[in-house]
């Protein structure tokens, strides 16, 4: 008779109710409202699809890739794109499609590791500095200033050269240079909420500084930090690619996109695909993260509502 799923209208009503019956229902309802707002933004959806595709490709890389990303065959080196090798082969006869697919894993690992290290450090430094104030604020913010004063790639270069070139060291170097902007954002947010009545109210209930910062200040700063992180992901990918390009990130034969461009540039005029394909991959993924970040800002950043 009618093909509407019987649960659909009630589930929607359950999620959108003004009077939830449990903590979970209240949280799910909030998430549902945010998701609806996000889905109304087509560009953000494009970004989300790209990012989800990157994750999917990274997860099922062995299924998607017809060849090993490091198997060399000098007999077929620098082949143009064809049915057997969709994106052609590089100077060692490796399949570029397989290398792009496996490279998604490396990109994702770099981005994930950097974010896991950077966001909490930035949040904590910024909220503590903003909330406690006084000499704590002065010391933490001067340290932040010192890190901000260095050009990012140069500092990362110096760190990697000191620690030795590898993907882990590249992640550490990027993380050490990427946290100061988050600390600044979190501090600015904290300064606007530290004197608000709801903070005074929880102080009056006898809450300690740690409880106020973690339970009341951080949740309000997280939104803008998440948005900024998503927008910075493109920059992180580009810095990682830059380090790879300079030979200081992933080491051969790892299929890191930046390193692939670096080796491909020698053949750019005659065998354009060797450097161009990984370039397109970096471009698409960076664009995806940027679009996603813009969409997230519209949904979760309290200032844009």
């Amino acid at each position: 008779m009618n093909d509407v799923h019987p649960d659909t209208p009630t589930l929607r009503a359950w999620l959108l109710t003004e009077a939830p019956h449990s903590r979970t229902q209240a949280r799910l309802g909030q998430a549902y409202v945010a998701a609806l707002a996000f889905l109304r933004n087509p560009l953000a959806l494009v970004g989300l699809v790209i990012v989800l595709a990157l994750i999917a490709v990274a997860v099922v890389a062995p299924i998607l890739a017809p060849y090993s990303p490091i198997a060399q065959d000098l007999g077929i080196r620098l082949q143009p794109p064809s049915i057997e090798h969709w994106f052609g082969t590089d100077e060692l006869g490796r399949d570029i499609y397989a290398r792009i697919v496996y490279g998604a894993r490396i990109t994702l690992v770099i981005v994930g590791m950097v974010v896991i290290m950077v966001a909490p450090i930035g949040l904590l430094v910024g909220t503590v500095a903003g909330f406690v104030g006084g000499w704590v604020d002065a010391v933490l913010m001067r340290i932040t200033d010192v890190f901000l004063a260095f050009p990012r790639l140069i500092l990362a270069l110096a760190l990697v050269s000191a620690l030795g070139p590898s993907i882990e060291n590249a992640v550490i170097a990027i993380a050490l240079t990427a946290w100061p902007p988050y600390a600044r954002i979190a501090r600015a947010e904290t300064l606007t909420i530290r004197n608000s009545d709801f903070i005074a109210a929880v102080r009056l209930q006898g809450a300690g500084t740690a409880r106020i910062i973690l339970g009341h200040v951080v949740p309000l700063c997280t939104a803008s930090v998440i948005v900024r992180v998503t927008l910075d992901m493109a920059g992180i990918i580009l810095t990682a690619a830059g380090l790879g390009f300079l030979g200081l990130g992933a080491q051969p034969p790892m299929p890191e996109w930046g390193a692939m461009i670096s080796t491909g540039r020698k053949f750019l005029l005659d065998q354009w695909w060797v450097a161009t394909i990984p370039g397109i991959a970096i471009f698409v993924v960076s664009l995806g993260f940027n679009l996603l970040g813009d969409g997230l800002r519209d949904v979760i950043d309290p200032k844009s509502q």
Partner: peptide, 16 residues
Amino acid sequence: QMVFQDPYASLHPRHT
């Protein structure tokens, strides 16, 4: 304990 003037400012916006 204290009750504040503006109930729009005295409740945490992200807390139930």
